[in-house]
Design a protein around this nucleic acid. Structure first.
Lengths: 113, 113
DNA sequence: TTATTATATAAGGGGTTACTTATATGTTGA
DNA sequence: TCAACATATAAGTAACCCCTTATATAATAA
């Protein structure tokens, strides 16, 4: 389909081959998120989350945008592998409840756009 | 789409996140292959190839079938993640030339069904 | 039976990964 | 300016990954 290399494609799939990053990408397909939201949702340390996002950013799968003291991450639709990512995400479990959780916990108070 | 877990899905993607295995799966989608064909195509050692196939088999992504002294591997369409695999494979480079190569080198002589 | 071929498995090593804790950077508001 | 907050980076570590070499298993053919 695309004419990118096997190696590059494998690199993208390896990035998606981690449950935290895979879930992140799934969430980002719905809406942009900031680091503290991920920390809350995944119950992981802030550096761990930051490091996962760094890898996604290094691969240019996500964009970051600072807004005040928060940095929001979003999917990068310009990436050559965005269609692959979209196709993969079709196959992951629904995560709507995660957004509901964020609302309920009033995370907006500590991480407000 | 499917109702399998994020973790299981990530596990499959991690398996596909290696250029040798990704390429193998792409080839197996076209036709079954035996170990010595992969050894030839990938210019890798026989144990290395065997170990990759072992991982794919452990995940039940491939089936094996002995025919004489050869063991043929094929994709397992029964696997819950087969649709994911199919969608991923749409995004890898064409490998038709690899089959042509096998023909030309008359691999049939050393690895004949 | 013995040699040959095809494949699998075991053991080991070097590189990578995904965390951890500690610290640095950058922004905001008093 | 300073304290609090959000995030990034650095360093360390245990577990894992992908190869290697050596050996075992299994089928075939002489």
């Amino acid at each position: 389909m695309e004419h990118e290399s096997m190696e590059e494609t494998a690199k993208i799939l390896k990035l998606l081959g981690d449950k935290t990053r895979l879930s992140m990408i799934g969430l980002l397909l719905k809406k942009e998120c900031c680091v503290c939201e991920f920390v809350e949702l995944f119950k992981m340390s802030q550096p761990a989350i930051s490091q996962h996002l760094r890898k996604l950013k290094d691969a240019e799968l996500v964009n970051e945008q600072r807004r005040g003291q928060w940095i929001f991450y979003s999917l990068n639709p310009e990436n050559a592998y965005f269609p692959l990512v979209q196709d993969v995400i079709k196959h992951i479990p629904d995560q709507q409840e995660k957004f509901v959780l964020l609302e309920q916990q009033g995370l907006r108070i500590t991480c407000n756009s």
